[in-house]
């Protein structure tokens, strides 16, 4: 019975240590976001969907694009604002806007602790990279 305070203290310490990543992230959220330094496109102000949606769901959107273009032959995407885009990650996403995938896709993926997107193993980015933004 007299061990109770010890046990509680030990448990608290354990839970605190195990959850370090969570509360550390929560406390330093602002600083970490600022340090992310995501470069926004210079030419275009509006993405194919609202930025908040893209931030959380770009992977679903890209997967839809992929399946519709490859499987159903639907290669045009009509955006929420009525504009039409090609479902083409190289031309639409990279060439037009996010010309440096290392500074955009990969920086944010690293920040979020997700592995780098493997789109660019096949979809080409060499032409934008060589057009010089480094």
């Amino acid at each position: 019975m007299s061990d109770r305070p010890l046990i509680v203290a030990g448990l608290t310490l354990f839970v605190g240590l195990v959850s370090t990543p969570i509360w550390h992230g929560a406390l330093n959220r602002e600083a970490a976001m600022a340090a992310l330094h995501i470069k926004l496109p210079a030419r275009e102000k509006q993405c194919v969907a609202p930025a908040s949606y893209m931030r959380t769901s770009h992977m679903q959107l890209l997967e839809h694009w992929r399946n519709e273009a490859v499987r159903d032959g639907q290669r045009q995407f009509v955006a929420f604002n009525g504009k039409t885009y090609d479902k083409d990650p190289t031309r639409t996403c990279l060439t037009e806007c996010h010309t440096d995938r290392k500074e955009f896709c990969e920086r944010c993926h690293n920040y979020a602790g997700v592995s780098d997107p493997n789109c660019w193993n096949c979809h080409n980015d060499s032409h934008v990279a060589s057009e010089g933004n480094s």
Partner: peptide
């Protein structure tokens, strides 16, 4: 990886992996 063996890449068609 096929990329090193492609002389000039056509950006409008994906390479394979």
């Amino acid at each position: 990886d096929p990329r090193p063996a492609i002389a000039t890449v056509n950006p409008d068609f994906p390479t394979r992996t």
